[in-house]
Design a protein around this nucleic acid. Structure first.
Length: 490
RNA sequence: GGCGCAUUCGUCUAGUGGCCUAGGACAUCGCCCUCUCAAGGCGAAGAUCACGGGUUCGAAUCCCGUAUGCGCUACCA
């Protein structure tokens, strides 16, 4: 009785997939992988007017970045294709015709103008806007007349005039609607394309979808779909509606909330594994403790029953934390692999390409746990690669120092550094700590000034290791130019 | 306007009648570590469980009402 699970992600190519879309895709994919079922990708391009060029590619790119491979669909094929709705028009047309012959649907000749005007009047009278069913009972003569006028009709579905439609949603439980409140919806548009409702029902049936996992916004339309399944004598799939995602102000996530497209996060330097962990926890949890889930953990533990019913606000702080966490979990080689392309693009031109991997291997451990976003890497490490750094006199002197003390400190350091035998972190520490004493400075004062002198920054990785990696020549050269600056020489 | 769904710390959430004077995580604050920044450790603060009524020996958990939010109400999906 229990057939293998088949779920689908069915985006329409009207824009770049956003966080909410992709979370729905993730839940579908997880459910398929958890149950050993199939994850199908179907493109719902039934709205020719809203179609956006290139959107389809962005859908693939988003899925691939997150690591949600699909078992059937565009690119990979499958035995239930085609997987593009615009190539399935005949199927919808014959379903619509079948419904007409069975008395479940009818041609409607009402003009869009008439419909909008009618709705305007209805809402002025404080009535719920609805179709008045003018064409539902047209006689053959009346129909013939309309056809003679050259009007291309749409096809509307006959909603039963009484009774109730209910279904059991895996997430929301039993939901019930009065049929009288439902409109005779358009199922086939005058351009020959189906509306979402028809296409969705026909495809889900023909592709043998067992579970429809989709966003909450569809909950109210589900009775229409149930009625359509009935009229078509199809078995309805199981439904599981997912709570929606919102911006900080509790409004539906949109452009003004900043980045909403998943791929924006890719380019900002987020890790797909962090994104996946973050997304799944918006609306799903395993228990009261577990926060970190690998992909395998998720596949093992995911269940529709533990999806919550309340909408979630997108919390960038938490995402950032996950990202930092996952970066820290990366091996040095893993991190290098991910940052090399970024550095190749962003480091100043004076830095030789390809980027010196041996040097990178020595640098990475110093900045690894300081990295929250991959894209921050360039700012963090560029001083290692460039020849000279810019100094800021105030930073160089520091808050607890005077210019004189700073000059003195740099001069003494420079002298001692040039005669140091081994230029490594331990030797540097053994040399510089006593030096602070000799100079009557706190270690923080000396090290702070040296840090700015050698790196050009007041915030940098630990001094001794940093100096070791920089090497004696660069250190002395930079200390020299810092001295020149403080002394007011050029 | 109608219908549907929801409502636990700022945020994500745990919780399905007694284990809850409500647990965890992020963010915040403090302390420790410390050459800066991180990371890490420890700790604090933060929710009268939207509100009002019931039911019950006992309710965040069940019922009713109210409020608020969101969704749908298109020849959009």
């Amino acid at each position: 009785m229990s057939q293998p699970v088949r779920v689908r992600f069915a985006p329409s190519p009207t824009g770049i997939p956003h966080i909410g879309n992709m979370r729905t895709a993730l839940f579908n994919w997880l459910y398929a992988r958890h149950t050993g079922g199939k994850f199908i990708l179907r493109i719902e391009d039934t709205d020719q007017t809203r179609k956006v060029e290139g959107a389809e590619e962005k859908i693939y790119e988003s899925l691939e970045w997150l690591g949600l491979e699909w078992d059937e669909g565009l690119d990979v094929g499958g035995e239930y294709g085609p997987y593009l709705q615009s190539e399935r028009l005949e199927l919808y047309k014959s379903a619509a015709e079948h419904l007409i012959t069975q008395g479940h649907a009818y041609y409607c000749y009402c003009s869009p103008e008439r419909l909008t005007q009618m709705r305007a009047e209805q809402s002025k009278r404080k009535e719920p806007p609805h179709y008045d069913r003018t064409c539902r009972e047209l006689t053959p003569e009346q129909q013939a007349k309309k056809v003679a006028e050259g009007i291309t009709p749409v096809v509307r579905f006959k909603i039963p005039l009484d009774g109730k439609t209910s279904f059991n949603d895996i997430v929301y439980g039993q939901v019930e609607f009065e049929n009288v409140l439902l409109d005779d919806l358009v199922i086939l548009k005058s351009d020959g394309f189906p509306t979402y409702h028809l296409a969705n029902v026909v495809d889900d049936h023909m592709m043998q979808i067992t579970h429809v996992i989709r966003a909450d916004e569809w909950l109210s339309s589900t009775p229409k779909h149930m009625l359509l399944y009935d009229a078509l004598k199809y078995n309805a799939p199981q439904y599981a509606h997912m709570p929606m995602t919102f911006g900080k102000d509790k409004a539906k996530l949109s452009k003004r909330h900043g980045a909403t497209a998943l791929l924006d996060y890719k380019s900002m330097g987020y890790l797909p594994e962090a994104m996946m962990n973050f997304l799944v926890l918006m609306g799903w949890s395993l228990d009261d403790k577990t926060e970190i889930f690998s992909k395998d953990d998720l596949i093992r533990h995911f269940s529709l029953e533990r999806v919550s019913r309340t909408g979630a606000i997108f919390d960038m702080d938490k995402l950032n934390w996950f990202n930092g966490y996952y970066i820290r979990q990366l091996t040095v080689d893993g991190l290098i692999e991910r940052i090399t392309p970024i550095l190749g693009k962003e480091l100043p031109d004076e830095v030789k390409r390809p980027i010196d991997e041996d040097q990178l291997r020595r640098i990475v451990p110093l900045i690894h746990e300081r990295l929250k976003l991959l894209n921050e890497i360039t700012d963090l490490v560029s001083f290692f690669f460039v020849e000279d750094v810019q100094h800021n006199a105030d930073e160089l002197v520091g808050k607890k120092m005077t210019g004189e003390l700073a000059v003195n400190a740099l001069q003494s350091s420079s002298d001692k550094l040039s005669s140091l035998v081994e230029f490594d972190a331990d030797s540097l520490e053994n040399l510089l700590r006593p030096l602070a004493d000799e100079l009557g400075l706190k270690t923080g004062q000396l090290f702070g000034t040296l840090r700015v002198a050698t790196t050009g920054k007041s915030v940098a990785p630990p001094l001794f290791q940093t100096m070791e990696v920089l090497g004696r020549d660069k250190c002395l050269k930079r200390i020299g130019s810092a001295l020149d600056m403080l002394k007011g020489v050029g």
